[in-house]
């Protein structure tokens, strides 16, 4: 499974794409691509958003769904989704607390 991620142009904030909310600040609730067709669709959305200068550094990343939560496979993406592990008061994790 994959989700679409990027950084918002204006502030560089890590964002994920949701069919419901558009580019959102949290990974949970982002749209899952469960097959090739879904990936191609998200890829097209990402390219369009990049071309519209909404986001930059667009990427489709591998995720698993664990107990209903979206969990990126790579540590890099888990840190992007949560925040730096040395500063739990920063990043998305700080807002969730």
């Amino acid at each position: 499974m994959k989700v679409l991620t990027a950084n918002r142009l204006t502030d560089g904030e890590a964002v994920w794409y949701s069919d419901t909310n558009g580019w959102q600040d949290v990974i949970q609730g982002s749209t899952l691509a469960e097959d090739k067709t879904g990936e191609e669709r998200l890829d097209a959305i990402g390219k369009a958003a990049f071309a519209q200068n909404l986001v930059t550094d667009v990427d489709l990343i591998d995720v698993n769904v664990v107990d209903g939560a979206i969990v990126p496979q790579r540590l890099r993406e888990r840190i992007r989704a949560a925040g730096p592990t040395n500063r739990l008061d920063h990043g998305k994790q700080a807002r969730a607390a």
Partner: peptide
């Protein structure tokens, strides 16, 4: 575009990292 802007921002010390610029 980002491709045009990237070298300009780098010349001025602006990178894009994991969480932010």
């Amino acid at each position: 575009t980002e491709d045009q802007f990237r070298p300009l921002r780098l010349m001025n010390g602006v990178y894009l990292q994991l969480h932010a610029y």
